[in-house]
Design a protein around this nucleic acid. Structure first.
Lengths: 329, 329
DNA sequence: ATCAGGTATGACAACGCTGTCTTCCTTAAA
DNA sequence: TTTAAGGAAGACAGCGTTGTCATACCTGAT
């Protein structure tokens, strides 16, 4: 495997000049630049990251810290991140971080000391963890998060959760629903709670009063969707539609409706969030909100490496499918 | 951040001795070992991987190459792999490799040259790719695969696909089915085809003749499940049960049955494979086969790093749910 | 003609570790 | 008592880069 010395020898220059060419540093004559480039090409030379890290202080590694039970969500984000990393000549090291316990910090410590990553990518709900955020700030590790709380010391890629919530409200309201149950996210998923805020705003815009009994907290999983659905459908005046703030819970509502003999969407409309694979294959296919996960992942990498001036804009998209329809007459 | 020199100074020994202690090398007196350990502890010293790699030739990195549309599958394997890596002091670098095209080799080349990973982990269906396998062998990169073809030059963690297929056959046969349709995997997923072999063996063991028309090839995705199901149900004598070799296709069959007014499982039994989240939330919940994904991921890492003498044994588990029942009378 | 001030290039010392070789010290066999 | 053998510890040279500094060259203003 060719080293910088081989290239230098072949091109008849010093290793420093090769280094300059590789790093696109200034003050190299066009002539030499080309000669070196040719030598690099010929030998198929690739700089050794370890040596680079050791000498230069940069590791060309980004740590991706995650812990999210929804595989498709993480998977989508990771795909975007890993591809962008590749484009930029970086690599993505993944680490599964427990959501609680001091063990987390051991792992982080080991990761930071061994790898010295150039940046840290936090996926939700880790992006909400103040202790982790603080630890990273203390270590002065550049860190970017997706859908985390704002105002913290590190970068946060903001997602239009609020707008998406509003979209769901408008969709359901537009179909004629006036009494809509909401299964809210667990408080640990702070960004997701903005979905509910946007939804509330939609309600208000339609001149509807907010009724506390229609907002039931869920745990972002299937069983909790069933449980919350039971609460909502057990109301004296049950809702004609339910907005579950993620797909797993919406799927739970679908299941519950089936048990109770309610037809979806004729008797009850259901809207989810995330556009998971299961939402498409469910019966009926779930109306849900699609996030541009790969774009989001790529944007975080950009933020970490290029630090672009302006924050990226994402469009969440309402995917109308067969689980939502006008309310029963 | 403490370096080996700091530890050596604090313990009053040479850096080499510290290195010995860190690497659990022999020929260090118990007394010194303890003194050094104490110094390491006190300074919270962690060896720098880049330096280690540069000097020692090992990178403590494993490359995880994947490309699989089934997020939950990859996610499960990755979780097992990343945790085992951590236990062993390694790190997992992920890379998304296209399934075809020469671009693959550029990516691999870049990865290999820059990172010099100590091992490469290939997840299916990449584990079936002869060109990739050959490229890795050429570069002398230790490589382990899950569910790949046997006989290749690299390690392969064998999974009991055959046995699992047999289990499915026995399950369905045991329920009384005599005419069972099978949606077979695309040929690129070689390991998965053993599921069909095992299934065939079950048929033979029950004294049933094999009918070619009952075996229809699928593409491992939802639409292809629907299409294959249409072929099977369109048969002059349609099957009373369908074994789809993955969940996505089984979900497609479920959908098709619904369209045709067939009740599952009363009119048609359906069995999937993979135990994806969607298989649980589908209606009816899908009888399927669960693979110990995390264990499998961990085993590959073990194979790469520790090279254990004996191959690990995995148990695939049939998860009976509500999509399979005795055939209509 | 002289000199300041840039531009182009190279020499060389890190970076933090491990491999190799050397040295010193025990221990036990001859 | 001598000697071989091996255990314990250290000195030192890389590993493949980048950063810093030195050097040579060129330009244009004096």
């Amino acid at each position: 495997m060719a080293s910088i010395h081989d290239v230098a020898a072949l091109a008849g220059v010093s290793i420093k000049t090769v280094s300059r060419v590789v790093n696109k540093a200034p003050n190299v004559s066009e002539q030499l630049r080309e000669r070196v480039a040719a030598a690099i090409q010929q030998l198929d030379y690739r700089p050794n990251q370890s040596a680079r890290r050791l000498a230069g202080g940069r590791s060309f590694m980004i740590a991706f810290l995650y812990n999210n039970p929804v595989a498709s969500y993480i998977s989508g984000i990771q795909a975007g991140a890993v591809n962008r990393c590749r484009e930029l000549g970086y690599h993505l090291v993944v680490e599964l971080i427990p959501l609680a316990g001091d063990e987390r910090f051991d792992i982080l410590e080991g990761l930071a000391a061994a790898l010295r990553p150039d940046g840290v990518f936090l996926a939700p709900p880790l992006s909400d963890d103040p202790a982790v955020l603080e630890w990273l700030a203390e270590k002065k590790l550049p860190c970017a998060r997706i859908a985390g709380p704002n105002g913290a010391q590190s970068l946060n890629i903001v997602t239009p959760e609020w707008e998406a919530g509003r979209m769901v409200a408008d969709h359901l309201l537009g179909l004629g629903h006036r009494r809509i149950g909401v299964i809210t996210p667990p408080p640990a998923h702070e960004a997701a709670t903005h979905r509910v805020d946007g939804f509330r705003e939609g309600l208000a815009a339609a001149g509807l009063a907010e009724e506390a009994e229609l907002f039931v907290e869920g745990g972002f999983d299937y069983p909790s969707g069933i449980a919350a659905g039971e609460t909502l459908l057990g109301l004296a005046e049950p809702p004609t539609a339910i907005f579950a703030t993620n797909d797993d819970m919406a799927l739970g509502v679908l299941q519950l409706a089936r048990q109770r003999g309610l037809r979806v969407p004729q008797d009850l409309s259901v809207v989810g969030f995330d556009d998971t694979p299961a939402s498409l294959t469910a019966w009926p296919p779930l109306t849900t909100v699609r996030q541009p996960l790969a774009q989001m992942g790529a944007a975080v990498i950009d933020a970490l490496i290029n630090r672009p001036a302006k924050a990226p804009q994402f469009d969440f998209e309402l995917v109308p499918r067969e689980s939502s329809a006008p309310p029963p007459a």
